[in-house]
């Protein structure tokens, strides 16, 4: 770990926690072009949310590029302990972003993978590491990008509604996305954000965790859906597709009418954009 006090050169040196991260610096200008990294879950299960993200960005006057060679950030293998496989998949994504445009990711945990974990994957490949660090510096979660880089101004055209916001854990902790999500929602005049019980608690998805530990994960998602349903919200939004898959699957199984919707679709629809954000 980088610190003036540890001997960085020796891998065996006792590690210090990384220095406290200061607030992220955002570019003063909105860029003309960006990449969108769609993420694998969104690609298959929430493609409309990806399109809504593209439309939101385009409405901000940004040209969006979607490299067709993209697949997955590598997180499923990485968190399962298959580091080599994760590294190769990560390497394949690295090759996609040759221009220095920002990379916008409509899913907090995948953005976090780019921003925080690629450096660990390539820690002993100096040349790749430099590439990874450059990528991390220009990777943004969608809500963060809209708020902090586009400085978006949302004009709510919808009728009054109560909304509960769920933020994935890694997004919350690695990217601070709950702050961005709340802040975007607060721009919508007719939207009242309601808190739900144990809001910061995990929904129980956790990638392969939900199938490896079905009892525990099931208990967690039941508590989460109960909290969301009990919050008196008309709608549930989240910017994280893994959580949405989990939460919506549970709502459906429980035969509840509530469904979570991707933040991008919600924002676009509320502000008069045409969304094909069919709730999955």
């Amino acid at each position: 770990m980088s610190s003036p006090h540890s001997s960085v050169a020796t891998p065996q040196a006792t590690r210090l926690a990384p220095p406290l991260a200061g607030a992220r610096n955002y570019p003063a200008q909105k860029p003309a072009e960006v990449y969108l990294f769609g993420t694998c879950v969104l690609d298959l299960f929430f493609p409309e949310a990806g399109m809504d993200a593209i439309r939101l960005l385009e409405r901000e006057g940004i040209r969006v590029h979607f490299p067709q060679g993209q697949s997955c950030c590598g997180q499923p293998a990485y968190t399962s302990g298959y580091t080599d496989e994760a590294r190769e998949v990560a390497r394949a994504q690295l090759a996609l972003f040759s221009h220095d445009w920002p990379v916008v990711v409509p899913s907090g945990s995948c953005a976090g993978m780019f921003r925080h974990h690629y450096a660990e994957l390539f820690h002993d490949e100096p040349a790749t590491l430099r590439q990874v660090e450059a990528l991390a510096a220009r990777t943004y979660e969608l809500a963060e990008f809209l708020l902090e880089v586009c400085r978006i101004q949302l004009d709510d055209r919808g009728s009054p509604i109560k909304v509960a916001l769920h933020t994935s854990c890694s997004a919350r902790r690695e990217m601070g996305t709950h702050v961005h999500g709340r802040s975007l929602l607060s721009q919508l005049g007719q939207v009242e954000r309601v808190d739900h019980d144990h809001e910061s608690e995990c929904c129980g998805f956790g990638g392969t965790f939900c199938v490896r530990m079905p009892d525990i994960s099931g208990a967690m998602v039941r508590d989460k859906t109960a909290a969301l349903a009990g919050a008196g919200a008309d709608a549930v939004v989240s910017a994280d597709c893994g959580c949405l898959l989990n939460i919506n699957g549970a709502f459906e199984k429980q035969q509840q009418s509530l469904r979570g919707e991707h933040l991008a679709s919600f924002l676009l629809r509320r502000t008069g954009g045409k969304s094909d954000g069919v709730q999955s």
């Binding site: 969104l42 298959l44 299960f45 493609p47 399109m51 998602v221 989990n246 699957g249 199984k253 999955s280």
Partner: peptide
């Protein structure tokens, strides 16, 4: 604890 997830009609790649 959940219904089976249903892939969308077309992928984001296609859209």
């Amino acid at each position: 604890h959940r219904s089976a997830p249903k892939p969308a009609a077309r992928t984001l790649h296609e859209l």
